[in-house]
Amino acid sequence: MLCAVYKTRKKEGMFLYIKTKEDFSQVPEILMKQFGHPELVMLLPLDKREQLGRVDKKRLIDALNEQGYYLQIPPKQEDWLAEHRLSMGLSAREESKKF
């Protein structure tokens, strides 16, 4: 199975996988609006790959077969500063000082 992988400039690390290059007909319109202009990253032969970075291969193939697309969302980034401030009994964000 071959799929096309697209990225968006709106969100770092977000990718849209579709079965056929430039065929976004299975992707909901609202998702396409939020995704923005898709930029082709690569054509990916799934049969030749054992693992796929941050994507579970079986989950990807199932989504492509069932709904025609798969949206890879980047992992939530941890805010270490906010966690540290909370551990010290402070608010997560420093209050801005007004003069």
Rank of each mutant, 00 (worst) to 15 (best):
L2D: 10
L2Y: 08
A4K: 07
Y6G: 08
K7N: 09
T8F: 03
K10G: 15
K11R: 15
K11H: 07
E12Y: 05
G13A: 05
F15Q: 14
Y17K: 02
Y17N: 09
Y17C: 07
Y17Q: 10
E22N: 15
F24M: 06
Q26W: 01
Q26E: 12
V27T: 06
V27N: 04
V27K: 06
L31Y: 08
F35V: 06
G36E: 09
P38M: 09
E39T: 08
L40P: 04
L44F: 09
P45H: 03
L46T: 06
L46S: 08
L46I: 01
D47F: 00
G53V: 02
R54T: 12
D56S: 10
K57F: 03
K58D: 13
D62C: 01
D62P: 01
A63V: 00
A63N: 08
N65F: 00
Q67W: 00
Q67I: 00
Q67E: 06
G68R: 02
Y69S: 06
Y70R: 03
Y70K: 01
I73N: 09
P75D: 14
P75F: 03
K76I: 07
E78Y: 07
E78K: 13
E78Q: 15
L81A: 13
L81I: 14
E83K: 15
E83S: 15
E83T: 07
H84R: 12
H84I: 03
R85G: 06
L90Q: 07
A92Q: 08
R93I: 06
E94K: 06
E94I: 02
E95C: 00
E95Q: 02
K97D: 13
K97S: 10
